[in-house]
């Protein structure tokens, strides 16, 4: 919303179509044979525009981190396309792939394990230049790294220090600086603040927002913390068992959710206001998420859904404006993969 209001959301940068990742399940050591597959990501589609932040929320095991890995090329998709400025990067290899990868960079969740403890901060942030020397000639690297340290709010004189000399929040800044080194267009951030303490989390969220304005970045921001995602995102996708359940602007999803899973998820988030304790409309789901190796037929959420009927087991609900909402004007009209979609406000003041 804020981005659109500022008029800086532009052309489509990433166009993801029917993206899928299936991991084979095998049995036997010598005579290995495939007995099934884990459908970690199954036909996920979205578009990401210039300067925009798409938030992806979902519970553990829903496939959101796999989406991140597919986008930056750490995993090969089993199907679908990832179009970066119109070019399908899943088909590229060699030099062409390398050139594209420069533009899509990643920030990892855990600032403790994603930085090599034996490398200095300067080497960590400068390493992308070894792979893409055209961005920074050798003699210029030190200055570039120091610039990056300054940009993410660290003292440029720390260039020769090692990761263990920094706190969690500072390490995450180092990870962000590394992600910025090649001046990418898209940054995929997988749970970038969830390992941080509350007081430090806000600092890093602010940094990410400032960098977005400064470098006109597009973010895919993956997190399980719904309030952080709401704060930073222009659009939000809610993911469940490898598929998107509902996609819309931040206001559409949080203020006017129509998918039962989104409603349950939002209602389960503890609200930091004791006055709201009794006013809240809580939806308690029973049971656990089914295994992605053997997902339910039809709608994947139906085994935990209080609205499920026969149709839900038979037909996969499409991710589209649901039946009955076509004529509706206003924020309730957005893509929601439910046969029986209904608006229900669950966030107080939403």
């Amino acid at each position: 919303m804020n981005a659109e209001a500022a008029g800086r959301v532009g052309e489509t940068v990433l166009d993801v179509r029917d993206l899928a990742k299936h991991y084979p399940l095998t049995r036997g050591v010598v005579l290995r044979k495939q007995v099934g597959s884990v459908k970690a990501v199954d036909t996920v589609s979205f578009a990401l525009r210039k300067g925009e932040t798409l938030g992806i929320v979902g519970e553990s095991g829903c496939g959101k981190s796999t989406v991140a890995k597919l986008l930056v090329g750490l995993e090969k998709p089993s199907g679908g396309q990832i179009l970066y400025r119109g070019e399908d990067i899943t088909r590229l290899s060699g030099r062409a792939l390398k050139a594209v990868r420069r533009n899509i960079q990643m920030v990892f969740q855990d600032p403790y394990t994603s930085l090599n403890p034996r490398m200095t901060v300067g080497d960590i942030i400068g390493e992308p230049y070894d792979i893409h020397p055209e961005v920074a000639p050798k003699g210029d690297r030190r200055r570039k790294v120091q610039e990056l340290l300054d940009v993410v709010g660290l003292n440029p004189e720390y260039i020769n220090r090692y990761p263990h000399q920094f706190s969690g929040g500072q390490r995450q800044r180092i990870g962000i600086a590394r992600g910025l080194a090649l001046r990418p267009e898209v940054i995929v951030a997988d749970e970038p603040v969830s390992a941080l303490d509350v007081s430090v989390q806000a600092q890093v969220v602010n940094l990410l927002e400032r960098l977005q304005d400064e470098f006109d970045l597009s973010y895919v921001f993956i997190a399980h913390d719904l309030s952080v995602v709401r704060h930073i995102s222009d659009r939000v996708a809610v993911m469940y068992l490898g598929r998107f359940a509902e996609v819309g602007t931040e206001d559409e999803i949080y203020g006017h959710p129509t998918h039962p899973y989104t409603q349950a998820l939002l209602s389960a988030v503890p609200v930091p206001d004791p006055e709201a304790r009794d006013r809240r409309d809580r939806i308690l789901l029973s049971g656990d998420v089914p295994s992605p190796a053997d997902p339910p037929s039809g709608c994947r959420f139906r085994t935990r859904c209080w609205k499920a009927r026969e149709r839900c087991a038979l037909e996969v609900p499409p991710l589209d404006v649901p039946e009955g909402f076509e004529g509706v004007a206003g924020p309730a009209r957005h893509a929601s993969a439910c046969h029986f979609a209904e608006e229900r406000q669950v966030v107080p003041g939403g």
Partner: peptide, 20 residues
């Protein structure tokens, strides 16, 4: 104050400066 809230959308979050 550092919890993201509805009315702060699009604004900078309040952050406690420094580190523990």
């Amino acid at each position: 104050d550092s919890i993201p809230r509805l009315d702060q959308k699009g604004r900078e979050l309040y952050a406690i400066k420094g580190l523990p």
